[in-house]
């Protein structure tokens, strides 16, 4: 059985069964190629997103580009 993790994603609590950052990003309906992820305060390089395991209590920021001046 897959464990359910309690995370904080973009400031809000989130429960997930995703095992890796890439799996979480896809579960949220996002394309891992179009976002950047900060994992517990450090950049999670895109090339490692498939491999980085999530742990209970992890803090994530998922950002992308929006219009700006």
């Amino acid at each position: 059985m897959t464990a359910t993790l309690s995370l904080t994603v973009n400031g809000d609590p989130l429960r997930t069964a995703a095992a890796t950052i890439a799996a979480l990003v896809r579960e949220l309906g996002l394309n891992p190629a179009k976002v950047a992820v900060e994992h517990n305060g450090a950049i999670a390089p895109r090339s490692t997103l498939e491999g980085v395991a999530l742990a209970d209590g992890d803090q994530l920021e998922i950002v992308h580009f929006v219009g700006g001046g």
């Binding site: 994603v9 309906g29 950002v63 929006v66 001046g69």
Partner: peptide, 14 residues
Amino acid sequence: VTVAVRRVNISDPS
């Protein structure tokens, strides 16, 4: 073009 970096909208990713 300049662009800003902001949190993705998790509630409406489409």
